[in-house]
Amino acid sequence: MRVLGESDVLFILAAVRWTLLLSVIAFLGGAIGGLFVALARTGEITPLRYVAMGYIKIFQGTPLLMQLFLAFFVPGIFGFNVDPWGAAALGLSLHASAFLGEIWRGSIETVPRGQWEAATSLGFRYWAKMALVIVPQAVRIAVAPTIGFLVQLIKGTSLASIIGFVELTRAGQIINNATFRPFTIFGLVALVYFVICWPLSAYSRRIERKLAVAGR
């Protein structure tokens, strides 16, 4: 056992970049996947709608940790070797796709039917209708819950430590194993998460309040 030093604290703080990078990748992957899920779920192609629904149900009904385990171990069965990085990015992206897909489906469905009908009667095709009429209205509704989910996702990246990905939480564990100062170390780790997440939560709350006022 050794004493907790400045370099240990720096090691932990430096690991924040992996937490952030993993969050960004998972969020972007989730945004792309979520867009497909939301469009499939609200679209008129029945089989696609059911596939998207099943996808959402599976990911909402299982723990994120199991999803990460599966993302880590399953590709190996088929002969693909994934490192913790790839597994964490894949697992979290798939996870985020389901949740963002569901959030955005809800937002799209909040846009009144009359908006679809007006756009349809003016001769817009599906994609133009979506891009010019439906999405601009759905986005306003989606922003707050999307940021809310982003906060969940950032905190969720801590589970990637269990499949051996060295991010903020894992860095804390490593230092703690060497110095055994759990209160200080995990207090610091928690504080870092808070500093990242709290402003996002506050921002999302502000947007929600603004929308509530505009909606009056």
Partner: peptide
């Protein structure tokens, strides 16, 4: 459709 105008009971203007 684009040759047929339609006016709805609830106006359905695009609010944005």
């Amino acid at each position: 459709r684009r040759e047929i105008g339609m006016v709805f009971q609830r106006f359905n203007l695009f609010p944005h």
